[in-house]
Write a protein that binds this DNA or RNA. Structure first.
Length: 272
DNA sequence: AAACCTCCCTGGGGGC
DNA sequence: TGCCCCCAGGGAGGTT
């Protein structure tokens, strides 16, 4: 399930591969994923050049000459290199045929999307919080959210508060920081928050250099798995011993998400 | 306004 | 074997 690190790994590989290349054709096999798939206007703008690919939260932004498109991988999306004439396989939805290579989007659970970056989408993305690796000033951020009554887990998961964190990295970072998922910001000291922010940043960076986390569907462009999963400490591990203190890891539903944590290491909700 | 709930979709796993 | 149900996940959009 692609979160910030997985999207970043794919983005940089894609940019290396097709950045600066012309798009010859685009084929759509499935009319709609989360939203209707937008096709690039190659009739009025033939051979549109892909100038760059950037990332905004968990979205990739493909910057063509005349317009930009957003690619979101949802929870099971991935991109693979293919031969342009290969028959479509199950769960393949889009093919981009560039001058030097062809790419396909595979997304079994169809939570992803490919849409033109209209004013509507630009506005949506502007509402998002800072990127943990780029423009996250923890003091400003704390001042802005200190009266938020929700627990820290929900805040980290809310893209309007902070961009790019999903269920895996939220749980891992809170465990490393020894903070209970339901602690509110006003019970945490600035020192604790600074430490949390550093742990989030180092966890994300480590995951990027490891090629991302592979659970079920995530693969790098060449089909190889990321290998950050070997270092996961609590995600999906409820019922097994805590790697730090050996007490049994618990799990709880927060916002309809299963969150694993250690009662002993991460303490009580609201305790300091 | 902030916080919560619902829905989209499919594969995999457990129970019967 | 096969059927059914539940679960996983992000985020838009609706409701309280």
């Amino acid at each position: 399930m692609p979160e910030l690190p997985e999207v970043e790994v794919i983005r940089s590989k894609l940019e290396e591969l097709v950045g600066g290349k012309k798009l010859l054709t685009m084929s759509v096999q499935t009319p709609k994923l989360r939203y209707a798939i937008d096709t690039i206007d190659l009739i009025n703008h033939p051979q549109a050049r892909l100038n760059a690919i950037s990332r905004h939260a968990k979205y990739m932004v493909w910057h063509f000459d005349h317009e930009s498109y957003l690619l979101h991988l949802g929870m099971s999306g991935r991109v693979r290199i293919c031969e342009p004439s290969e028959p479509w396989e199950k769960h393949e939805h889009i093919q981009w045929h560039f001058e030097n290579t062809a790419l396909r989007l595979i997304d079994p659970r169809r939570f992803g999307c490919w849409v033109q970056k209209t004013a509507h989408w630009t506005h949506k993305l502007e509402q998002y919080g800072p990127d943990p690796l780029h423009n996250w000033n923890i003091e400003t951020w704390f001042k802005k959210h200190q009266h938020n009554k929700r627990g820290i887990y929900k805040i980290l998961m809310d893209q309007h508060c902070l961009s790019g964190i999903g269920n895996i990295y939220a749980q891992e970072a809170l465990f490393e920081s020894r903070i209970h998922p339901k602690r509110t910001l006003n019970t945490l000291s600035l020192t604790q928050l600074v430490e949390l922010s550093h742990i989030i940043q180092s966890t994300l960076k480590k995951a990027i250099t490891s090629g991302g986390t592979t659970l079920n569907d995530y693969r790098q462009l060449d089909g190889s798995e990321g290998y950050f999963q070997v270092t996961l400490k609590v995600y999906g591990k409820a019922g097994t011993p805590c790697p730090a203190c050996q007490s049994t890891l618990l799990s709880e539903k927060i916002s309809q998400r299963t969150v694993a944590y250690c009662m002993h290491c991460q303490g009580e909700e609201g305790s300091g």
